[in-house]
Structures are given as structure tokens and as C-alpha cells.
Simulated scan of single mutants.
Amino acid sequence: MVDELRDEFKKEKIAIVLRFVDVEGIIRESFLDLVQVRETLSLTLKTNMWRQLLHYQFDVSNICGQVYDGASNMRGEWNRLQAIVLKDCPYAYICASSKCHDELQKAKATKIEELLELGEIESGKRLN
């Protein structure tokens, strides 16, 4: 999760929080970093987010979900952060609100079934 904010000196920053499922199947959240950015344009946000994730040796290709609020630089199918992240993580589902979550989960399950049938991905213990 990435959120943009301004500190008391009016400097733009992004807060990065990871939400993940641990080996026991429990959903966890962990604060990763607070990063100063020049501006809050979509590409700047993505570049700084990727830099921090790679710095901590996270495999960004494992991103499986995106959730966006109504901010104009976040969601949108063209040059918003959502679209830019999807170029690197094509299997990440996108959710703009909790109402669409179920529909997106169904669409993702259908896509996984198709990929399994085509033999493009494998299924088994600890593979998904």
C-alpha cells in the first residue's frame, strides 16, 4: 500500500506499507518506509515505490493486488499509477472499492484456470 502525504515542512512523501500472507496463511501488514518525493505524479510514485521494494529485495513480479482511492494520479487505465504498475505486474488484480472486490476475485480465478489449462502456470503445494 502506498499513500502520499505532506510533512510539516510541506515536503511530499510516500508511505509504503506491505500487506502479505505469511507461511502460516495469516494476513500481515508491515510498515516498510517513508520516502520523500519531488512530486506526486504517477511515474514518480511508481519509480520511488519500486526503488524501495527492490532495495529491500522484494520481487515486484509477485505483486498480486492493487487497490486505489479516488485520487486522480492513482487510478485510471492510461497513465495513472494503476496502469503503470500493471505493465510490470500483468496478473495483479485491481480494486477501486470494496464493492468490486468479489468481481475481481472471480475474474482473477477465471484467468488462473485458463492459464492452468494452457500449461502456462503450474499448481501445487506452495506454487500459488
Rank of each mutant, 00 (worst) to 15 (best):
V35L: 15
V2N: 05
D59R: 08
A92R: 04
E4R: 07
T40N: 09
K108N: 07
A107I: 13
F9T: 15
D102W: 01
M49G: 00
Q57V: 03
A15T: 06
A15R: 01
V17A: 01
H101Y: 06
V21N: 01
K111H: 09
I14D: 05
C95D: 04
E12P: 10
G119A: 11
R51H: 06
K10P: 15
G119R: 05
H55S: 11
W50S: 03
N48P: 08
E114R: 09
S98F: 00
D3R: 03
L115E: 14
I26L: 08
L104M: 13
V60H: 04
L18D: 05
M74W: 02
E120C: 11
E4H: 05
V2H: 04
S61P: 04
E114C: 11
F20Y: 15
D88R: 10
L118H: 15
M1S: 08
T110E: 10
V85S: 10
V23Y: 14
H101F: 02
Q36N: 12
Q105V: 01
R38M: 09
G65N: 07
Y93C: 09
S42R: 00
V35N: 03
C64V: 02
Q66N: 03
E120L: 14
L86P: 00
R38Q: 06
E122W: 13
I16Y: 07
D7I: 08
V35M: 15
V67Y: 03
I27D: 04
L5R: 08
